[in-house]
Design a protein around this nucleic acid. Structure first.
Lengths: 239, 239
DNA sequence: CCCTCTAGGATTGTCGACAATTTGCGTCCC
DNA sequence: GGGACGCAAATTGTCGACAATCCTAGAGGG
Protein backbone atom coordinates (compact mmCIF):
# COMPACT_ATOMS: atom_id res chain seq x y z
CA UNK A 1 0.00 0.00 0.00
CA UNK A 2 2.68 2.47 1.03
CA UNK A 3 4.94 3.71 -1.76
CA UNK A 4 8.47 2.28 -1.85
CA UNK A 5 11.11 4.43 -0.18
CA UNK A 6 12.53 7.03 -2.47
CA UNK A 7 9.44 7.45 -4.58
CA UNK A 8 7.24 10.48 -4.46
CA UNK A 9 4.25 9.75 -2.30
CA UNK A 10 0.77 11.03 -3.03
CA UNK A 11 1.19 12.18 -6.58
CA UNK A 12 -2.50 11.88 -7.25
CA UNK A 13 -3.98 13.50 -10.34
CA UNK A 14 -3.78 17.26 -10.31
CA UNK A 15 -7.43 17.65 -9.45
CA UNK A 16 -8.68 14.50 -7.80
CA UNK A 17 -11.68 16.28 -6.37
CA UNK A 18 -14.45 17.87 -8.34
CA UNK A 19 -14.61 21.64 -8.11
CA UNK A 20 -18.08 21.44 -6.63
CA UNK A 21 -16.70 19.25 -3.85
CA UNK A 22 -13.93 21.73 -3.16
CA UNK A 23 -16.37 24.60 -2.92
CA UNK A 24 -18.72 22.58 -0.75
CA UNK A 25 -15.92 21.75 1.64
CA UNK A 26 -14.80 25.35 1.90
CA UNK A 27 -18.32 26.54 2.62
CA UNK A 28 -18.78 23.71 5.09
CA UNK A 29 -15.72 24.80 7.00
CA UNK A 30 -16.85 28.40 6.92
CA UNK A 31 -20.24 27.45 8.31
CA UNK A 32 -18.74 25.11 10.85
CA UNK A 33 -16.33 27.63 12.27
CA UNK A 34 -18.86 30.41 12.32
CA UNK A 35 -17.27 32.49 9.59
CA UNK A 36 -20.68 32.34 7.98
CA UNK A 37 -23.08 32.95 10.87
CA UNK A 38 -26.49 31.26 10.89
CA UNK A 39 -29.07 33.14 8.89
CA UNK A 40 -26.58 34.55 6.40
CA UNK A 41 -27.87 34.77 2.87
CA UNK A 42 -25.58 33.38 0.21
CA UNK A 43 -25.90 34.97 -3.21
CA UNK A 44 -24.95 32.69 -6.07
CA UNK A 45 -23.56 35.47 -8.22
CA UNK A 46 -21.45 36.92 -5.46
CA UNK A 47 -20.02 33.56 -4.40
CA UNK A 48 -19.37 32.59 -8.01
CA UNK A 49 -17.17 35.61 -8.50
CA UNK A 50 -15.50 35.09 -5.13
CA UNK A 51 -14.59 31.49 -6.01
CA UNK A 52 -13.72 32.41 -9.60
CA UNK A 53 -16.01 29.78 -11.04
CA UNK A 54 -19.23 29.78 -12.97
CA UNK A 55 -22.58 29.41 -11.29
CA UNK A 56 -22.93 25.82 -12.46
CA UNK A 57 -20.45 24.08 -10.18
CA UNK A 58 -21.24 26.52 -7.40
CA UNK A 59 -24.90 25.66 -7.64
CA UNK A 60 -24.11 22.00 -7.35
CA UNK A 61 -22.09 22.64 -4.23
CA UNK A 62 -24.96 24.59 -2.72
CA UNK A 63 -27.45 21.88 -3.58
CA UNK A 64 -25.16 19.42 -1.88
CA UNK A 65 -25.07 21.47 1.29
CA UNK A 66 -28.82 21.88 1.20
CA UNK A 67 -29.32 18.12 1.04
CA UNK A 68 -26.91 17.78 3.92
CA UNK A 69 -29.07 20.13 5.91
CA UNK A 70 -26.55 22.90 6.40
CA UNK A 71 -28.29 25.33 4.08
CA UNK A 72 -31.96 25.90 3.57
CA UNK A 73 -33.25 26.92 0.18
CA UNK A 74 -36.25 29.14 -0.36
CA UNK A 75 -37.41 29.00 -3.92
CA UNK A 76 -36.66 32.19 -5.84
CA UNK A 77 -35.58 33.73 -2.58
CA UNK A 78 -32.10 32.53 -1.91
CA UNK A 79 -29.98 30.22 0.19
CA UNK A 80 -29.50 30.77 3.89
CA UNK A 81 -27.27 29.24 6.51
CA UNK A 82 -29.49 27.30 8.89
CA UNK A 83 -29.91 28.68 12.35
CA UNK A 84 -30.07 26.21 15.18
CA UNK A 85 -32.85 26.60 17.69
CA UNK A 86 -32.89 24.97 21.10
CA UNK A 87 -35.01 22.15 19.71
CA UNK A 88 -32.39 21.47 17.09
CA UNK A 89 -29.71 21.09 19.72
CA UNK A 90 -31.79 18.41 21.33
CA UNK A 91 -32.44 16.78 17.98
CA UNK A 92 -28.78 16.80 17.00
CA UNK A 93 -27.66 15.15 20.18
CA UNK A 94 -30.46 12.62 20.12
CA UNK A 95 -29.40 11.61 16.62
CA UNK A 96 -25.72 11.61 17.55
CA UNK A 97 -26.49 9.46 20.53
CA UNK A 98 -28.14 6.90 18.27
CA UNK A 99 -25.32 6.89 15.75
CA UNK A 100 -22.44 6.83 18.20
CA UNK A 101 -24.05 4.16 20.33
CA UNK A 102 -24.26 1.95 17.26
CA UNK A 103 -20.69 2.79 16.29
CA UNK A 104 -19.48 1.99 19.77
CA UNK A 105 -21.26 -1.33 19.71
CA UNK A 106 -19.65 -2.29 16.45
CA UNK A 107 -16.26 -1.17 17.68
CA UNK A 108 -16.75 -3.21 20.83
CA UNK A 109 -17.93 -6.36 19.14
CA UNK A 110 -16.41 -6.44 15.73
CA UNK A 111 -13.21 -4.49 15.55
CA UNK A 112 -9.72 -4.50 16.92
CA UNK A 113 -10.44 -2.75 20.19
CA UNK A 114 -6.87 -1.95 21.13
CA UNK A 115 -6.04 -0.46 17.77
CA UNK A 116 -9.17 1.67 17.85
CA UNK A 117 -8.42 2.77 21.39
CA UNK A 118 -4.96 3.85 20.29
CA UNK A 119 -6.38 5.98 17.50
CA UNK A 120 -8.86 7.57 19.87
CA UNK A 121 -6.17 8.27 22.41
CA UNK A 122 -4.29 10.29 19.85
CA UNK A 123 -7.26 12.63 19.47
CA UNK A 124 -7.52 12.97 23.23
CA UNK A 125 -3.86 13.96 23.22
CA UNK A 126 -4.75 16.68 20.75
CA UNK A 127 -7.47 17.82 23.09
CA UNK A 128 -5.01 18.03 25.94
CA UNK A 129 -2.60 20.03 23.81
CA UNK A 130 -5.32 22.45 22.76
CA UNK A 131 -6.42 22.78 26.36
CA UNK A 132 -2.90 23.57 27.58
CA UNK A 133 -2.61 26.23 24.88
CA UNK A 134 -5.97 27.64 25.87
CA UNK A 135 -7.34 27.36 22.35
CA UNK A 136 -11.09 26.71 22.58
CA UNK A 137 -11.48 26.31 18.84
CA UNK A 138 -8.79 23.66 18.59
CA UNK A 139 -10.23 21.95 21.64
CA UNK A 140 -13.63 21.65 20.01
CA UNK A 141 -12.04 20.48 16.79
CA UNK A 142 -10.14 17.75 18.61
CA UNK A 143 -13.27 16.79 20.49
CA UNK A 144 -15.13 16.36 17.24
CA UNK A 145 -12.23 14.40 15.80
CA UNK A 146 -12.57 11.93 18.65
CA UNK A 147 -16.16 11.24 17.79
CA UNK A 148 -15.43 11.18 14.09
CA UNK A 149 -12.72 8.61 14.70
CA UNK A 150 -15.05 6.51 16.81
CA UNK A 151 -17.60 6.43 14.03
CA UNK A 152 -14.96 5.69 11.41
CA UNK A 153 -13.80 2.81 13.56
CA UNK A 154 -17.22 1.24 13.26
CA UNK A 155 -16.37 0.49 9.64
CA UNK A 156 -19.89 1.37 8.57
CA UNK A 157 -20.15 3.46 5.44
CA UNK A 158 -23.63 4.56 6.36
CA UNK A 159 -22.94 5.52 9.93
CA UNK A 160 -20.02 7.59 8.70
CA UNK A 161 -22.13 9.28 6.06
CA UNK A 162 -24.97 10.08 8.41
CA UNK A 163 -22.64 11.36 11.11
CA UNK A 164 -20.88 13.88 8.88
CA UNK A 165 -23.65 16.44 8.96
CA UNK A 166 -24.33 15.82 12.63
CA UNK A 167 -20.75 16.57 13.58
CA UNK A 168 -20.75 19.78 11.58
CA UNK A 169 -23.95 20.84 13.27
CA UNK A 170 -22.41 19.98 16.60
CA UNK A 171 -19.51 22.23 15.76
CA UNK A 172 -21.97 25.00 14.98
CA UNK A 173 -23.53 24.54 18.39
CA UNK A 174 -20.17 24.68 20.11
CA UNK A 175 -19.19 27.77 18.15
CA UNK A 176 -22.44 29.53 18.91
CA UNK A 177 -22.38 28.75 22.61
CA UNK A 178 -18.71 28.88 23.40
CA UNK A 179 -19.39 30.25 26.84
CA UNK A 180 -20.96 27.12 28.19
CA UNK A 181 -17.87 25.02 28.36
CA UNK A 182 -17.24 22.64 31.17
CA UNK A 183 -13.87 22.27 32.87
CA UNK A 184 -11.32 21.04 30.38
CA UNK A 185 -9.94 18.36 32.68
CA UNK A 186 -13.44 16.97 33.03
CA UNK A 187 -13.91 17.10 29.30
CA UNK A 188 -10.73 15.15 28.65
CA UNK A 189 -11.45 12.76 31.48
CA UNK A 190 -14.82 11.78 30.04
CA UNK A 191 -13.21 10.75 26.78
CA UNK A 192 -10.41 8.90 28.51
CA UNK A 193 -12.83 6.82 30.54
CA UNK A 194 -14.73 6.05 27.36
CA UNK A 195 -11.56 4.74 25.74
CA UNK A 196 -10.74 2.60 28.76
CA UNK A 197 -14.18 1.00 28.70
CA UNK A 198 -13.75 0.31 25.00
CA UNK A 199 -10.32 -1.22 25.55
CA UNK A 200 -11.71 -3.44 28.29
CA UNK A 201 -14.62 -4.50 26.16
CA UNK A 202 -16.96 -3.40 28.90
CA UNK A 203 -20.11 -2.80 26.91
CA UNK A 204 -22.37 -1.63 29.67
CA UNK A 205 -19.91 0.93 31.01
CA UNK A 206 -19.04 2.19 27.54
CA UNK A 207 -22.65 2.70 26.53
CA UNK A 208 -23.56 4.27 29.86
CA UNK A 209 -20.65 6.67 29.63
CA UNK A 210 -21.56 7.57 26.07
CA UNK A 211 -25.15 8.31 27.04
CA UNK A 212 -23.98 10.41 29.94
CA UNK A 213 -21.57 12.26 27.68
CA UNK A 214 -24.38 13.22 25.33
CA UNK A 215 -26.75 14.02 28.16
CA UNK A 216 -24.19 16.35 29.71
CA UNK A 217 -23.69 18.18 26.45
CA UNK A 218 -27.40 18.64 25.90
CA UNK A 219 -28.04 19.96 29.35
CA UNK A 220 -25.18 22.38 28.94
CA UNK A 221 -26.22 23.60 25.50
CA UNK A 222 -29.97 23.42 25.87
CA UNK A 223 -30.86 23.64 29.57
CA UNK A 224 -34.16 22.15 30.52
CA UNK A 225 -34.18 19.32 28.03
CA UNK A 226 -33.08 15.75 28.52
CA UNK A 227 -32.29 12.93 26.17
CA UNK A 228 -33.04 10.31 28.78
CA UNK A 229 -36.55 11.45 29.49
CA UNK A 230 -37.43 11.99 25.89
CA UNK A 231 -38.59 15.46 26.68
CA UNK A 232 -38.24 17.28 23.41
CA UNK A 233 -38.92 20.98 23.23
CA UNK A 234 -41.16 22.10 20.40
CA UNK A 235 -39.34 22.48 17.11
CA UNK A 236 -41.33 24.60 14.66
CA UNK A 237 -40.31 22.74 11.54
CA UNK A 238 -41.00 19.30 12.88
CA UNK A 239 -44.67 18.89 12.03
CA UNK B 1 -54.12 24.34 9.84
CA UNK B 2 -57.12 23.00 7.88
CA UNK B 3 -58.83 25.45 5.56
CA UNK B 4 -62.21 26.81 6.62
CA UNK B 5 -65.19 24.89 5.25
CA UNK B 6 -66.31 26.09 1.86
CA UNK B 7 -62.87 27.24 0.74
CA UNK B 8 -60.83 25.48 -1.86
CA UNK B 9 -58.32 23.26 -0.10
CA UNK B 10 -54.77 22.83 -1.27
CA UNK B 11 -54.55 25.54 -3.87
CA UNK B 12 -50.82 25.68 -3.60
CA UNK B 13 -48.76 27.41 -6.29
CA UNK B 14 -48.82 25.67 -9.61
CA UNK B 15 -45.37 24.18 -9.15
CA UNK B 16 -44.39 24.05 -5.51
CA UNK B 17 -41.60 21.59 -6.12
CA UNK B 18 -38.43 22.32 -7.99
CA UNK B 19 -37.96 20.37 -11.19
CA UNK B 20 -34.79 18.83 -9.87
CA UNK B 21 -36.73 17.50 -6.90
CA UNK B 22 -39.37 16.02 -9.19
CA UNK B 23 -36.74 14.28 -11.28
CA UNK B 24 -34.92 13.04 -8.20
CA UNK B 25 -38.11 11.56 -6.81
CA UNK B 26 -38.92 9.80 -10.06
CA UNK B 27 -35.46 8.30 -10.31
CA UNK B 28 -35.60 7.32 -6.65
CA UNK B 29 -38.81 5.41 -7.21
CA UNK B 30 -37.37 3.76 -10.29
CA UNK B 31 -34.31 2.64 -8.37
CA UNK B 32 -36.34 1.56 -5.38
CA UNK B 33 -38.72 -0.61 -7.34
CA UNK B 34 -35.99 -2.12 -9.43
CA UNK B 35 -36.98 -0.48 -12.69
CA UNK B 36 -33.40 0.71 -12.78
CA UNK B 37 -31.41 -2.35 -11.72
CA UNK B 38 -28.20 -1.92 -9.74
CA UNK B 39 -25.20 -1.22 -11.92
CA UNK B 40 -27.18 0.58 -14.60
CA UNK B 41 -25.37 3.49 -16.16
CA UNK B 42 -27.36 6.69 -16.39
CA UNK B 43 -26.41 8.98 -19.25
CA UNK B 44 -27.12 12.62 -18.62
CA UNK B 45 -27.91 13.39 -22.22
CA UNK B 46 -30.29 10.49 -22.59
CA UNK B 47 -32.15 11.20 -19.35
CA UNK B 48 -32.34 14.90 -20.17
CA UNK B 49 -34.18 14.17 -23.39
CA UNK B 50 -36.37 11.59 -21.67
CA UNK B 51 -37.44 14.08 -19.02
CA UNK B 52 -37.69 16.93 -21.52
CA UNK B 53 -35.44 19.18 -19.48
CA UNK B 54 -31.99 20.58 -19.87
CA UNK B 55 -28.96 18.96 -18.36
CA UNK B 56 -28.76 21.59 -15.62
CA UNK B 57 -31.68 20.58 -13.42
CA UNK B 58 -31.11 16.94 -14.25
CA UNK B 59 -27.53 17.20 -13.09
CA UNK B 60 -28.66 18.68 -9.81
CA UNK B 61 -31.06 15.82 -9.30
CA UNK B 62 -28.30 13.32 -9.96
CA UNK B 63 -25.94 15.07 -7.59
CA UNK B 64 -28.64 14.89 -4.98
CA UNK B 65 -29.04 11.17 -5.42
CA UNK B 66 -25.29 10.71 -5.30
CA UNK B 67 -25.07 12.49 -1.97
CA UNK B 68 -27.92 10.31 -0.74
CA UNK B 69 -25.87 7.27 -1.66
CA UNK B 70 -28.20 5.83 -4.25
CA UNK B 71 -25.94 6.63 -7.17
CA UNK B 72 -22.20 6.47 -7.38
CA UNK B 73 -20.34 8.90 -9.57
CA UNK B 74 -17.12 8.09 -11.36
CA UNK B 75 -15.48 11.24 -12.59
CA UNK B 76 -15.63 11.56 -16.35
CA UNK B 77 -17.05 8.06 -16.49
CA UNK B 78 -20.69 8.34 -15.63
CA UNK B 79 -23.28 7.72 -12.98
CA UNK B 80 -24.27 4.23 -11.93
CA UNK B 81 -26.97 2.80 -9.75
CA UNK B 82 -25.28 1.36 -6.68
CA UNK B 83 -25.23 -2.39 -6.37
CA UNK B 84 -25.64 -3.83 -2.92
CA UNK B 85 -23.21 -6.47 -1.78
CA UNK B 86 -23.77 -8.76 1.18
CA UNK B 87 -21.73 -6.45 3.37
CA UNK B 88 -24.02 -3.59 2.45
CA UNK B 89 -27.05 -5.52 3.56
CA UNK B 90 -25.44 -5.91 6.95
CA UNK B 91 -24.49 -2.26 7.00
CA UNK B 92 -27.95 -1.08 6.05
CA UNK B 93 -29.64 -3.07 8.75
CA UNK B 94 -27.08 -2.11 11.38
CA UNK B 95 -27.75 1.54 10.58
CA UNK B 96 -31.49 1.03 10.48
CA UNK B 97 -31.32 -0.70 13.81
CA UNK B 98 -29.61 2.32 15.32
CA UNK B 99 -32.06 4.80 13.82
CA UNK B 100 -35.23 2.90 14.56
CA UNK B 101 -34.15 2.08 18.08
CA UNK B 102 -33.73 5.78 18.73
CA UNK B 103 -37.04 6.56 17.06
CA UNK B 104 -38.79 3.93 19.14
CA UNK B 105 -37.30 5.35 22.31
CA UNK B 106 -38.52 8.82 21.50
CA UNK B 107 -41.95 7.51 20.57
CA UNK B 108 -42.07 5.59 23.83
CA UNK B 109 -40.94 8.42 26.06
CA UNK B 110 -41.98 11.60 24.40
CA UNK B 111 -44.93 11.15 22.13
CA UNK B 112 -48.57 10.25 22.27
CA UNK B 113 -48.16 6.49 22.25
CA UNK B 114 -51.76 5.59 21.46
CA UNK B 115 -51.98 7.97 18.55
CA UNK B 116 -48.72 6.67 17.14
CA UNK B 117 -49.83 3.10 17.61
CA UNK B 118 -53.01 3.86 15.69
CA UNK B 119 -51.05 5.25 12.78
CA UNK B 120 -48.80 2.23 12.74
CA UNK B 121 -51.74 -0.13 12.86
CA UNK B 122 -53.07 1.39 9.69
CA UNK B 123 -49.88 0.42 7.86
CA UNK B 124 -50.12 -3.09 9.24
CA UNK B 125 -53.63 -3.23 7.86
CA UNK B 126 -52.18 -2.34 4.48
CA UNK B 127 -49.72 -5.17 4.88
CA UNK B 128 -52.53 -7.58 5.59
CA UNK B 129 -54.44 -6.39 2.54
CA UNK B 130 -51.41 -6.78 0.32
CA UNK B 131 -50.79 -10.22 1.75
CA UNK B 132 -54.33 -11.36 1.10
CA UNK B 133 -54.04 -10.16 -2.48
CA UNK B 134 -50.74 -11.96 -2.85
CA UNK B 135 -48.92 -8.82 -3.95
CA UNK B 136 -45.31 -9.04 -2.75
CA UNK B 137 -44.46 -5.56 -3.98
CA UNK B 138 -47.31 -3.92 -2.10
CA UNK B 139 -46.45 -5.97 0.95
CA UNK B 140 -42.91 -4.68 0.97
CA UNK B 141 -44.14 -1.15 0.38
CA UNK B 142 -46.49 -1.37 3.34
CA UNK B 143 -43.73 -2.87 5.45
CA UNK B 144 -41.50 0.06 4.68
CA UNK B 145 -44.34 2.47 5.37
CA UNK B 146 -44.59 1.02 8.85
CA UNK B 147 -40.99 1.79 9.59
CA UNK B 148 -41.20 5.18 7.93
CA UNK B 149 -44.20 6.02 10.10
CA UNK B 150 -42.36 4.90 13.21
CA UNK B 151 -39.47 7.19 12.42
CA UNK B 152 -41.78 10.07 11.54
CA UNK B 153 -43.46 9.57 14.89
CA UNK B 154 -40.18 10.26 16.62
CA UNK B 155 -40.58 13.88 15.58
CA UNK B 156 -36.88 14.13 14.80
CA UNK B 157 -36.01 15.95 11.61
CA UNK B 158 -32.60 14.34 11.53
CA UNK B 159 -33.70 10.79 12.15
CA UNK B 160 -36.24 11.19 9.36
CA UNK B 161 -33.66 12.58 7.00
CA UNK B 162 -31.12 9.90 7.71
CA UNK B 163 -33.68 7.12 7.43
CA UNK B 164 -34.91 8.10 3.99
CA UNK B 165 -31.96 6.65 2.13
CA UNK B 166 -31.84 3.61 4.38
CA UNK B 167 -35.44 2.73 3.64
CA UNK B 168 -34.89 3.08 -0.08
CA UNK B 169 -31.88 0.82 0.15
CA UNK B 170 -33.93 -1.63 2.16
CA UNK B 171 -36.50 -1.64 -0.60
CA UNK B 172 -33.71 -2.40 -3.06
CA UNK B 173 -32.67 -5.35 -0.95
CA UNK B 174 -36.21 -6.66 -0.78
CA UNK B 175 -36.64 -6.23 -4.52
CA UNK B 176 -33.38 -7.97 -5.30
CA UNK B 177 -33.99 -10.90 -2.99
CA UNK B 178 -37.71 -11.40 -3.28
CA UNK B 179 -37.39 -15.13 -2.89
CA UNK B 180 -36.30 -15.04 0.72
CA UNK B 181 -39.57 -13.99 2.23
CA UNK B 182 -40.78 -15.34 5.48
CA UNK B 183 -44.35 -16.38 6.11
CA UNK B 184 -46.64 -13.40 5.76
CA UNK B 185 -48.55 -14.14 8.95
CA UNK B 186 -45.27 -14.10 10.82
CA UNK B 187 -44.27 -10.88 9.14
CA UNK B 188 -47.51 -9.16 10.13
CA UNK B 189 -47.39 -10.66 13.60
CA UNK B 190 -43.95 -9.20 14.32
CA UNK B 191 -45.17 -5.71 13.57
CA UNK B 192 -48.32 -6.18 15.58
CA UNK B 193 -46.40 -7.25 18.65
CA UNK B 194 -44.17 -4.23 18.20
CA UNK B 195 -47.18 -1.95 18.22
CA UNK B 196 -48.57 -3.59 21.34
CA UNK B 197 -45.33 -3.10 23.21
CA UNK B 198 -45.31 0.54 22.13
CA UNK B 199 -48.88 1.03 23.25
CA UNK B 200 -48.10 -0.52 26.62
CA UNK B 201 -45.03 1.63 27.03
CA UNK B 202 -42.99 -1.51 27.58
CA UNK B 203 -39.55 -0.27 26.61
CA UNK B 204 -37.61 -3.45 27.09
CA UNK B 205 -39.99 -5.59 25.07
CA UNK B 206 -40.27 -3.00 22.30
CA UNK B 207 -36.52 -2.64 21.91
CA UNK B 208 -35.94 -6.38 22.09
CA UNK B 209 -38.59 -7.03 19.46
CA UNK B 210 -37.11 -4.36 17.24
CA UNK B 211 -33.63 -5.84 17.50
CA UNK B 212 -35.01 -9.27 16.75
CA UNK B 213 -36.91 -7.89 13.78
CA UNK B 214 -33.73 -6.48 12.28
CA UNK B 215 -31.72 -9.55 13.14
CA UNK B 216 -34.27 -11.76 11.41
CA UNK B 217 -34.16 -9.66 8.28
CA UNK B 218 -30.38 -9.69 8.14
CA UNK B 219 -30.11 -13.42 8.57
CA UNK B 220 -32.68 -13.91 5.85
CA UNK B 221 -31.07 -11.49 3.40
CA UNK B 222 -27.42 -12.08 4.24
CA UNK B 223 -27.05 -15.51 5.79
CA UNK B 224 -24.04 -15.99 8.00
CA UNK B 225 -23.95 -12.48 9.40
CA UNK B 226 -25.39 -11.23 12.64
CA UNK B 227 -26.08 -7.79 14.00
CA UNK B 228 -25.92 -9.00 17.57
CA UNK B 229 -22.49 -10.47 17.36
CA UNK B 230 -21.07 -7.60 15.42
CA UNK B 231 -19.70 -9.96 12.87
CA UNK B 232 -19.46 -7.82 9.78
CA UNK B 233 -18.45 -9.39 6.49
CA UNK B 234 -15.74 -7.57 4.59
CA UNK B 235 -17.02 -4.65 2.57
CA UNK B 236 -14.50 -3.66 -0.08
CA UNK B 237 -15.26 0.02 -0.05
CA UNK B 238 -15.16 0.43 3.71
CA UNK B 239 -11.44 0.80 4.35
C1' DC C 1 1.01 -13.46 -31.81
C1' DC C 2 1.22 -9.78 -28.40
C1' DC C 3 2.13 -5.25 -26.99
C1' DT C 4 1.99 -0.21 -27.81
C1' DC C 5 0.58 3.84 -29.61
C1' DT C 6 -2.81 6.66 -31.82
C1' DA C 7 -7.15 8.40 -33.51
C1' DG C 8 -12.05 8.46 -32.86
C1' DG C 9 -16.29 8.70 -30.35
C1' DA C 10 -18.77 9.56 -26.32
C1' DT C 11 -19.49 11.37 -21.92
C1' DT C 12 -18.98 14.60 -18.32
C1' DG C 13 -17.41 19.37 -16.72
C1' DT C 14 -17.86 24.22 -17.41
C1' DC C 15 -19.45 28.50 -19.02
C1' DG C 16 -22.22 32.64 -20.35
C1' DA C 17 -26.77 34.32 -21.52
C1' DC C 18 -31.80 34.34 -21.34
C1' DA C 19 -36.29 33.62 -18.93
C1' DA C 20 -39.30 33.30 -14.83
C1' DT C 21 -40.40 34.76 -10.34
C1' DT C 22 -40.25 37.33 -6.16
C1' DT C 23 -39.51 41.47 -3.35
C1' DG C 24 -39.41 46.28 -2.38
C1' DC C 25 -40.51 50.87 -3.46
C1' DG C 26 -42.81 54.54 -5.71
C1' DT C 27 -47.03 56.29 -7.28
C1' DC C 28 -51.80 56.89 -7.71
C1' DC C 29 -56.43 56.84 -6.08
C1' DC C 30 -59.74 57.04 -2.39
C1' DG D 1 -53.17 60.07 5.30
C1' DG D 2 -53.94 55.16 4.29
C1' DG D 3 -54.28 51.49 1.19
C1' DA D 4 -53.78 49.19 -3.20
C1' DC D 5 -51.82 48.85 -7.55
C1' DG D 6 -47.96 48.55 -10.70
C1' DC D 7 -43.26 48.92 -12.04
C1' DA D 8 -38.40 47.91 -11.65
C1' DA D 9 -34.34 45.75 -9.67
C1' DA D 10 -32.34 41.64 -8.10
C1' DT D 11 -32.15 36.87 -7.59
C1' DT D 12 -32.84 32.24 -8.88
C1' DG D 13 -34.14 28.76 -12.56
C1' DT D 14 -33.17 27.10 -17.10
C1' DC D 15 -31.00 26.42 -21.38
C1' DG D 16 -27.74 25.40 -25.29
C1' DA D 17 -22.97 25.26 -26.69
C1' DC D 18 -18.05 24.65 -25.99
C1' DA D 19 -14.00 22.46 -23.74
C1' DA D 20 -11.68 18.81 -21.21
C1' DT D 21 -11.30 14.14 -20.16
C1' DC D 22 -11.72 9.24 -20.59
C1' DC D 23 -12.72 4.61 -22.85
C1' DT D 24 -12.36 1.88 -27.05
C1' DA D 25 -11.08 0.14 -31.33
C1' DG D 26 -7.77 -0.31 -34.75
C1' DA D 27 -3.38 -0.07 -36.99
C1' DG D 28 1.44 -0.56 -36.68
C1' DG D 29 5.71 -2.46 -34.94
C1' DG D 30 8.35 -5.82 -32.35
Amino acid sequence: MAPPPGMLPEIEPVSRESTAAVIARQLRDAIMTGALPPGTQLGETELASRFQVSRGPLREAMQHLVSEGLLRSERHRGLFVIDLEPGDVYDIYAARSAIERAAMLRALRGGDRDRIADVLERTVAEMATAASEDDPGALSTADLKFHEALINASGSKRLVRMARTLLIETRMCLTALQSTYQRVEERVEEHTKLIQALRDGDEETALTLLDAHMEDAVQRLAPGTSLQEGHAPPVPGNA
